[in-house]
């Protein structure tokens, strides 16, 4: 544990003010993520997990506590963290290529170079041939591939994924989880992946952090997943871990 964490949350608390009432969303959240670790935050709806991710992203500020990246306090959004949105958030007026190259474009990378970068990541997510398609011509799974490629193309050190497959059907969801493993193993990054799906969590994570089922969100338990990749959903250890986590979750509901 001598290694410095890539991302560290220290006593992060968040509450919103709504209708003159303070609604606590996160309660003294401590988390440290090592470089190239794949951490999954697992919790049901309304457990503060999206808020946590947005605070780590720098899109929202915590009420107290702080987020550190490489030991530096996070004060706002930045290029070194990439976010994949639950609702894709592709720009409908841009083609796949236009969406993916947006990050390098904003950083002033010359057109030829950013095309090269974008092509690389379009290929990585398996969308070659669709460079000139507009988002509305793509299926949900393909849209989120674009979302992942767009985040990757900006060369972030940390990838934050906010229930990225929440809007997909079950089969596509399985497949996208496989693809996520493949992409991550091809180009390793530190990943914080938020989901409400237990199987997805076990399939993907090095470590799973479960949240309490109600607000304010706080860490319930941590599971280390040492199964070799690619993982099988019907593997005995996989099923055992799923049983343990399901048991724990059941008590909450």
């Amino acid at each position: 544990m001598g290694k410095k964490p890539k991302i560290a949350c220290e006593g992060v608390t968040k509450s919103f003010l709504r209708d003159m009432k303070t609604i606590p969303v996160l309660d003294t959240f401590d988390l440290s993520v090592q470089e190239n670790e794949f951490v999954v935050i697992l919790g049901p709806g309304q457990s503060g997990k999206t808020t946590l991710l947005r605070i780590i992203a720098g899109l929202e500020t915590s009420s107290s506590g702080r987020v550190l990246m490489d030991g530096n306090v996070v004060t706002g959004p930045g290029q070194e963290r990439g976010l994949v949105f639950q609702r894709y958030m592709l720009f409908p007026w841009k083609t796949v290529m236009g969406n993916v190259e947006l990050g390098p474009k904003l950083r002033g990378v010359p057109k030829k170079d950013r095309r090269e970068i974008a092509s690389h990541y379009v290929n990585l997510v398996g969308l070659s041939g669709f460079e000139n398609a507009y988002p509305h011509q793509l299926s949900g799974g393909m849209k989120q591939r674009v979302g992942i490629a767009r985040a990757y193309a900006n060369k972030p050190e940390v990838m934050l994924l906010d229930e990225p497959f929440g809007q997909l059907d079950a089969q596509t969801r399985y497949f996208m989880a496989k693809e996520t493993t493949r992409i991550w193993e091809t180009e390793k990054r530190t990943v914080i992946f938020v989901t409400n799906n237990i199987e997805e969590a076990i399939f993907l994570g090095d470590r799973i952090i479960t949240l309490d089922g109600k607000l304010p969100g706080r860490i319930k338990s941590t599971f280390r997943v040492d199964l070799p990749r690619p993982r099988e959903h019907i593997d005995a250890d996989f099923l055992e871990l799923r049983r343990v986590i399901t048991e724990e979750t059941r008590l909450l509901l």
Partner: peptide
């Protein structure tokens, strides 16, 4: 959230207006 996309990618307020 479309503004958040630009902010996450390192864009400035001017980029939010243009993009």
């Amino acid at each position: 959230e479309l503004y958040d996309v630009v902010r996450m990618l390192g864009g400035k307020p001017r980029d939010e207006a243009v993009e």
